[in-house]
Computed example of a mutant assay.
Amino acid sequence: MLSEYYEQIETIIMYLALSGLFLLMGFAVHDVLKKNEIPMGGRIVVYSVLFFGCVGFLAKGIIQVFFSA
């Protein structure tokens, strides 16, 4: 039974791992910005770039699901 769903399990684990990496990257960016006392405008720019990177990653996954079916 596990061999039947191997590809789906692999895909789910990959997406979870990449989501975890995005989360860790967000924590690292937050720590660097806080320690260097970056102004609010700079923080907004950095967080928006990180956010849109995550949104692009999610959009890519959703598009792949809809067009592969």
Rank of each mutant, 00 (worst) to 15 (best):
M1S: 14
M1G: 13
S3Y: 02
S3F: 01
S3G: 02
E4N: 08
Y5G: 08
E10V: 04
E10N: 09
T11A: 14
T11W: 08
I12C: 08
M14D: 03
Y15S: 11
L18P: 00
S19V: 01
F22N: 03
L23V: 11
L23D: 07
L23S: 10
L24H: 05
L24Q: 10
L24A: 15
M25W: 01
G26I: 00
F27A: 06
V29A: 14
H30Y: 12
V32S: 01
K34D: 06
K35S: 07
K35P: 00
K35L: 06
K35Q: 10
N36D: 02
N36L: 01
N36T: 09
I38W: 10
I38N: 05
I38S: 07
P39V: 01
P39N: 03
M40D: 10
G41F: 13
G42C: 00
G42L: 01
R43M: 15
R43E: 15
I44M: 13
I44S: 07
V45K: 10
V46E: 03
V46P: 10
V46W: 12
Y47L: 12
S48Q: 10
S48I: 12
V49F: 14
L50P: 03
L50G: 13
L50V: 12
L50W: 04
L50C: 12
F52C: 11
C54N: 07
C54E: 04
C54L: 15
C54P: 00
V55G: 02
V55N: 05
G56E: 03
F57I: 02
L58W: 13
A59L: 15
K60H: 11
K60A: 12
K60G: 09
G61D: 01
I62E: 04
I63M: 08
I63N: 12
Q64A: 03
V65F: 05
V65Q: 04
V65W: 01
F66S: 12
F67T: 11
S68A: 12
S68D: 02
S68E: 03
